[in-house]
């Protein structure tokens, strides 16, 4: 096997030229790639091709609010930075703050977590609920697409071999009620068994927006707009009667593989909890 080349560019432009010429694998925080390629103590991890290390590129760091109220997060912004930022939507902060433990959150990046496209990755789940987009740049141009479209399946994305994820843009969203749960084996340092975000807006007793997204429940994060539509437009007094239809429709988004009974049952209980809170006139804010 030819020796793997490693590039350590100082600017984004250099990194994009390297992507164009060598199609080198982008390494952001390293928390997935360094472990996947690990060869044990004292040995350089193995990579499937050349590598471009983008960890410290200043152009890929930071969180800013754009003129239209949306929030742009640089691809190499860490989970800890996202969890600490008041600019970022609370559901995304929840997911970032529950990833691994402190040290991991100081290394793992939002771009890496999306680019790795693991179904158990924590960041895509609330981002897909919020209709967030990834900004992809190459030496020749830029394009944007929904995170939901970018992640095709487990470990498969729409990234071209000359592109880098440069940022994630979360559109301005406000809901009257939000809910987040991560189910793992421990409180800290756990890989998700199941995650769920839900958000709703209730206005004058009517559900005008309802969304949910399930993570770690299939080959990619799942939303089911058809199921969501069952609840949208309903009065909160009607939620009890249409809840079962919604929950049955949501069953379909949970993959039939890997303990579907457990995942469906737990997801049903979480969604029921949130919908019951709405039906009971829960005050605006977070449903615990």
């Amino acid at each position: 096997m030819a020796e793997v080349k490693c590039f350590v560019p100082q600017t984004l432009q250099e990194a994009l030229e390297i992507r164009k010429q060598y199609h080198a694998i982008p390494l952001a925080g390293g928390s997935d790639l360094m472990v996947a390629g690990s060869m044990g103590a004292g040995v350089t991890p193995k990579f499937a091709g050349d590598v471009v290390v983008i960890t410290n590129l200043p152009e890929l760091k930071g969180i800013r609010e754009l003129d239209d109220g949306s929030v742009e997060i640089g691809a190499c912004t860490t989970s800890a930075e996202i969890a600490a930022s008041e600019l970022v939507h609370p559901l995304v902060r929840d997911a970032a703050s529950r990833m691994g433990a402190i040290a991991l959150r100081n290394s793992a990046t939002i771009g890496g977590n999306i680019g790795n496209a693991s179904p158990k990755g924590d960041m895509p789940q609330p981002l897909i609920l919020l209709d967030a987009e990834v900004v992809l740049r190459s030496a020749d141009g830029e394009r944007r697409m929904l995170v939901d479209e970018y992640i095709i399946a487990t470990k498969k994305t729409a990234l071209r071999d000359d592109e880098l994820i440069v940022s994630v843009v979360i559109p301005k969203q406000s809901f009257t009620h939000i809910f987040y749960r991560k189910i793992g084996m421990r409180r800290a340092n756990a890989i998700s068994k199941l995650t769920l975000s839900a958000a709703a807006t209730v206005k004058d007793g009517v559900v005008v927006d309802f969304r949910a997204s399930s993570g770690a429940a299939g080959p990619k994060v799942a939303r089911c707009r058809k199921a969501e539509e069952i609840l949208i437009g309903k009065k909160i007094s009607e939620l009890n009667t249409c809840k079962e239809e919604f929950l049955d429709a949501w069953n379909g988004v949970i993959s039939p593989h890997a303990m579907p009974e457990y995942r469906r049952n737990t997801t049903r209980r979480l969604l029921t909890h949130f919908i019951d809170a709405l039906a009971a006139g829960h005050p605006e804010g977070r449903v615990e």
Partner: peptide, 22 residues
């Protein structure tokens, strides 16, 4: 665990290239 720019990180999952300038 070590401290990189004031923050706790695990040095087993960081390539040395990832601490350039730190």
């Amino acid at each position: 665990s070590i401290i990189k720019d004031g923050k706790l990180v695990t040095s087993c999952i960081i390539p040395v290239a990832g601490v350039n300038g730190c």
